[in-house]
Design a protein around this nucleic acid. Sequence first.
DNA 1: ATCAACAACGAACATTTGTTAGTTTGATAG
DNA 2: CTATCAAACTAACAAATGTTCGTTGTTGAT
Lengths: 192, 192
Amino acid sequence: MNKKLNKRQIILDEAAKLFKLKGFGGTSMRDLAGEVGMEAASMYNHIKSKDEILEHLCFHVSNTYIAQLAEVEQMPGSNGDKLKELLRWHINLMLEDGAAVSVANNDWKYLTDSKLEQFKAARKQYEKGFAALIENGIAAGEFRPVNASVALFTILSAVRWVELWYRPGRGVTAQELEEDIMAILLNGLAKN
Amino acid sequence: MNKKLNKRQIILDEAAKLFKLKGFGGTSMRDLAGEVGMEAASMYNHIKSKDEILEHLCFHVSNTYIAQLAEVEQMPGSNGDKLKELLRWHINLMLEDGAAVSVANNDWKYLTDSKLEQFKAARKQYEKGFAALIENGIAAGEFRPVNASVALFTILSAVRWVELWYRPGRGVTAQELEEDIMAILLNGLAKN
DNA sequence: ATCAACAACGAACATTTGTTAGTTTGATAG
DNA sequence: CTATCAAACTAACAAATGTTCGTTGTTGAT
């Protein structure tokens, strides 16, 4: 049974890479099977359907997001500290699990019916919590008085392309990346 | 002949909307035809193929980008002024022609072979010019000394989601949007 | 040695896809 | 009225897609 979970995980991991590279619609089950090293039909011993793969990847990410938000909310410290921590976490997640995050960012729209609604709800929940953090910071005088939604999306989307662009050993270190992104966004939001 | 160009334009516009909504792979020619108000086969009197539609949308955007960059480069003023102008232009393009920009941002990977290379080259050219602008600003002491590539992608991707999120009349005005995004990014990049 | 469970396979399926061919319609110019 | 020509239609195509079925090894416990 250990082996079964293992093969399933391989399929999921490989799917994340392929979906990121060619998109959900652009990746056939035969493509994926080729990458995994078996026939397409064989994969159905480990997964239920192509949709299930997408669901797993998307909700794995959204669950992680929400869990991390809850953790940061309970942290001691100023709103600026919390935002900093969340931002740092986002960047690192991109560096560590970028393929899955990319799929959740780009291919969630191919989720089916109820799962789609579920995912959108999860995303909205995360965004609401994140926006509240910014609003609190503005109310406390820590942040520049901008529209919280605008700040939220500016920050979230700024982080998104780390994964599409960053390649280790290509002139920029991971630490430099983290520092510079955070410098721009946190100073941008800081009052004066 | 006027009418022919018109119908073609309708198809292209509707395709941009659908591709943005459901992705290139998720949109069938029959879907598109339904939206346009004719049979799928009839569209081939106006367009050459589904790929041609994608190519048109992508290169229309990349050409606009490059033209605008050239214009800004010739502008008088500091690097900060130029960056500000380019940023403002980006935001407005998102508000005016967001569907096409979305397609160029998300579905360019489905371009075929030589067109794909061509598009990547165009994008690289734009990024290089944009990065040079930032580097000049840093060298001139206008901007905080961050890695230019990191700054570039932070800015470019921050702008990307305007289109996915912004809906007129939903609490935030276009002007507020523009002001706040620019405030965060320009202050973030500004020295001190 | 036997049995059961699992995991891989080849073949086939029903659909959907982009696209082509041939035909009909409808407006316009002579 | 008729010839013309673009633009729409119906029908069909071959290819690709996700998935199912029945079979065949393979493994581990009894």
